[in-house]
Structures are given as C-alpha cells and as structure tokens.
Amino acid sequence: MKVGYLVPEFPGQTHAFFWREIRALEELGAEIRLISTRKPPADACPHAFREAAVARTTYLFPPEPGAMASAIARSPQGVVRALRYAARLSASGPREVAKNLGLVAVAATLRSLAARAGLDHVHIHSCANSANIGAMARLMGGPSYSLTLHGGLSVYGSDHAMKFAGASFVSAVTRPLAAEIAAVAPALRAPVIMMGVDTDEFRPPEHAAERPVGAPFRIVSIARLNMTKGHRFLLRAMAELAARAPQLAIEYRIVGEGPARDQIAAEIAALGLTATARLDGSKSEDEVRAILGTADALALTSVGQGEAAPVAVMEAMAMGLPVIVSRIGGTPDMIVDRVDGLLVPQEDVGAIAGAIEFLATDPAAAAAMRQAARQAAIARFDYRANAAKLWHEITSDGR
C-alpha cells in the first residue's frame, strides 16, 4: 500500500518523532512518500536525518504550474467543489479570502502528486491548513486522507467540521484531544495513538554513576523557547530554593531554540541565576540523548492549552529520568504522580520548587522513580507499537 505522509514544514527541530514513525511504518510494509507544505530553513532541523529527509520530501509550495489545469481536465466538478470549500472557510478580510482560495492550487498539486505516485491514502500530521489541503485534494478526486491532532483544536484554527467531514479518521495523541474531536464530529473514528520513542536507543546509561553527596542536582528542559513552555516558572522555583535552601545546589540546562530566547535570558539575569542556568540552543537527537544521560531530572512546566503528549517527557522517562511536568493536555495519562514522575499545577512555583527539593534530597525515592519511569516508557511509549496502531487504522478503513 502506498501512503503519503504529510508533515508541515518538514523536517524541523521537533520532528525526530516523525522520522521514527516513518521508519516503523516502512518496517510494517508501508511504501511511504514524504510530503510537506514548504521547505524550512536549513538551520530549522539540527538532527542527523535532515539531509535524508529533505531528499525524500516533495514540497507542495510553490504549487505546480500545471496542477490546476490537470485537476480541471480530470474533474471540473471536483475543482468547483474545492473552490466552494475554500470560499466557506473562515476569513477576517480580503487577504485571508485570497489565501484560502490559494490553497486550492496547493491541493491540486497534492492531487497531481498522488496520481503520479499512485498513492492510496495520505496521512496528515496536522489539523491546520494542511488538513484543508487534504480535504480539497480529496474533493478534486485525490486519495483518501486521515489526520492526527497534536494539540487543542483552538491551536489549529477553525472550520474543523469541514476538515473532518471527508477524513477516514482523525487520531489524537491524548484522550482529552479525542474528546474534542468527538464534540465536533461524533460519528468519526478518533482513536488515541500516542507519539512514541525508541526505547532501545533512549535507555539509561550502562554505567550511570550516583550523584555524589553535595554535587549539584542537574535539571534539563528539552523544548522550544516559547513562553507557553513555562521555563520561567522553573527558573522562579530555582530562585525560591536558592533563598530558602541555599545548601541545595541546582543546575538547569535549557535545550531548544525559539522566539522567547531573549525573554528567558532576561529572566535568568533578573533572578540572579546566570551561574546556574544556561541556554544551550537547539541540539540533535544524539546530543539530546547524551544530555539526558548526564541529568538528574527533566522538567517541562508548560502552561496553556498547546501541550498534548510531549515526546521530550517520553524520551526522558525512557532514559530512566524522573520528570517534573505540568498537569496539561495528556500528561496525567502519561504519568502516575509520585510513582514514575511528578505532576505539578500550572504556574505553581511553590509546587515546582517542592518537586525539585523532593528529588534532590531523597535519593532512594528518586532511584525508585527512575526505574518506574523506564518501565512505564517501555509499556506505553514505544514508537513501534504506536506506529502499528496508526497502520492498523489506515489499512483497516474499508479495505
């Protein structure tokens, strides 16, 4: 079976999961054609697979010059249906109306590509405009399509009922997201299929040494530098601990890049943490694994609605690291609090400080949590098992 696999602006900083899933699907017998909306800047992906991914990916933008003519020749009624679909999309002004209509040409490009490649189906890892492109390509006689929802629907624009109407299924990475899909399209299949991690590659170091008495407790965050990731709350928790428990040494490495770099750097300086907190920039998957191997805990103190089932948390747990994570999205489904990780309320600096202090001062509890985290990752997050669930949904749909 030939399947198109569409990820917007692929490959990017956070796209290691997709590369793993592609490999797993191919091991299951899928013939995968990689598709993306547009090519990202060269520095957007620090991973070793970048060149191989770019070489394999067909980009839909700019649209093929002859794609619309080909679509009209094949199915003029289909093109009319796609134009009507685009005209019904929400728009706040003439510019957005023009942009929506322009998506029709991109959808025609997807239809042409699918026809040439003999694609039976396209799976789209987004519920934003890429979903509209898949829906309009289908209206023009293109292949069936399915979607994965990676965050709250509010993050992915509007018109979700239209996007879902023609989809074979819409999978969700958490149960709360599946409930959002069901609220829009009650009759639509909405299986919960988490993203995954390679638990063979992400595993505890073979000769991990215990943290010496008095050595700094090392925390790492692996996340885009965006204010929704909540780095500032972890930094404020560090400042609180420095004031009330100065004997407790904490070090914090922030791995990632993004638009909030200057704001986070200013927070570090304002809290007097320049000697103990540092911005490391974007790192490759191999570098991330090495950094996790030297850490004592991972923290992801995100806020808002954009977080779902963070892969960085899965990777850390697979490495046998205790995690300190906000109650957000699907994290309560991922973590059993005080067993294989620590869940904290969003924006609760005191709770974050308490979680750090607990792990840093109770090595026996931290060691037990390390073992439980590793076993939980194997049981819940292995990428092969989750890719098999996706492949089952794709291949069982009326076939």
Rank of each mutant, 00 (worst) to 15 (best):
H123G: 04
D43W: 12
S112F: 01
G93Y: 01
L149P: 05
L119V: 04
A91M: 10
H121P: 10
G66R: 06
P94K: 03
S130H: 10
A52V: 09
G157C: 11
A115W: 06
L113I: 08
G142D: 10
T37Q: 04
L103N: 00
A67E: 02
D159C: 11
L119Y: 06
S36I: 00
V122H: 04
T148R: 01
S130D: 14
A67R: 00
S75E: 09
G152H: 15
I72C: 10
S144W: 13
L103C: 00
T37E: 05
H125Y: 06
A82P: 12
I72W: 12
A108M: 09
G102T: 00
K39T: 09
A105H: 00
H150N: 05
S75G: 10
Y156N: 09
V106C: 01
A135L: 03
L139M: 12
A115Y: 06
G78P: 08
T57A: 01
S92I: 13
D43P: 07
T37L: 12
A137W: 13
L101V: 03
E51K: 06
P46D: 14
S144K: 15
E51A: 04
H121N: 05
S70E: 13
R111T: 14
R84W: 14
E51R: 07
L113N: 02
P65I: 03
V155E: 15
S36F: 00
A105Y: 00
I124M: 09
S90P: 14
N100W: 06
R50F: 07
P94C: 02
T109H: 02
A71N: 04
L153P: 08
G151M: 11
A69R: 09
G151D: 12
A108D: 02
S75D: 15
K39S: 11
